[in-house]
Each structure stands twice: as structure tokens, then as C-alpha cells.
Amino acid sequence: MAKNRHAARRIRSERVRYQIARTCGDRPRLSVFRSVSHIYAQIIDDKQGRTIAAASTLEESIRTQIKSGGNKEAAVLVGRYIAERALQANIREVVFDRGGCLFHGRVKALADSAREGGLEF
């Protein structure tokens, strides 16, 4: 058992990433990081070790449209942007990496928005 919540989150994150590596095949990974005041999403090609597309609430184009970066509306907007950028890079299928977070709230809102935008996972 982990000594604190940060260590527990890191353990959960490594467990999720291990399962993804075992089962995902050649698909890139849609990684989500959620902080108190912002949310970030990246599409990562693990074979080449590079980021293909990224979106976050820190971007000026997203920041002007939202009141706060730490709510579901912001997560929905980031999901739309990441799906749009993935389609521009000719990526339709990804595997979802929720990190150490539970799949509810802002993480689920981002995932649902990315699915509506055209990503399949």
C-alpha cells in the first residue's frame, strides 16, 4: 500500500499503462492529465517516443472560450480540440490512458467529447 495519495496515483498510473502496453497493439495513446485548475491531453506514439497532437486549457484559443480550466466545460472543449488535431494527423483509433484518475467527471467528459469528434477507442 502506498504511503500517500501521490504515490498511490503513480502506482495506479503505472498499472494502467502496463495494461495498455499489453493490449493496445500499434495504436497511439491518448493520455489525459487532470490538475485542480487545468486539464491536458496528448496523443503519444510510444514506438517512436513522440507526441503527435496535444491540447490543454492553457492554450490561448481555448482559454478565451472558457471561464475556468478546471471544470467539465473546459474538458469537453479540450476533447474537441484533441480529436480535431488527431484527425488532421490522420489518426482515428487511439487507446485511452486515464493515468491514475478514475473514469468519471472531467476525464469522462473529455473522452466523450473526443469520441464525438471522431476518435475511436
Rank of each mutant, 00 (worst) to 15 (best):
A53H: 08
K3V: 06
R106H: 02
G99D: 01
L119D: 06
A8R: 15
D46F: 05
D97N: 10
T51W: 08
E120C: 12
R10H: 04
E73Q: 15
H6F: 12
K72A: 12
S37E: 13
K3P: 01
R29H: 00
P28K: 13
I43C: 03
A86Q: 05
R115P: 00
L119V: 09
R85V: 02
V32P: 01
K72Q: 10
R12E: 00
A109S: 11
S68C: 09
G105L: 03
A74I: 11
S61T: 13
S61W: 11
T64D: 09
V95P: 06
A75Q: 05
S68H: 13
Y81E: 13
E84H: 15
K108F: 00
I91R: 13
S35L: 10
A83H: 06
Q42V: 01
A114G: 03
I11Q: 14
I43V: 15
V32C: 03
Q19R: 14
Q42N: 01
E14D: 11
V94Q: 10
V107F: 01
V94H: 11
K67S: 12
G79N: 06
H6L: 12
S68M: 11
Q19F: 04
V36I: 12
L58R: 14
R115Q: 08
R115F: 00
N71G: 09
A89K: 15
A8G: 07
R15L: 06
V107L: 04
E120R: 15
S37C: 10
E59K: 15
F121H: 06
R29A: 03
A86D: 00
V107M: 02
S56L: 04
Y18V: 04
V78G: 10
K3C: 02
T57V: 12
V107K: 03
I20Y: 02
S56D: 09
F33A: 08
R10L: 11
A41V: 07
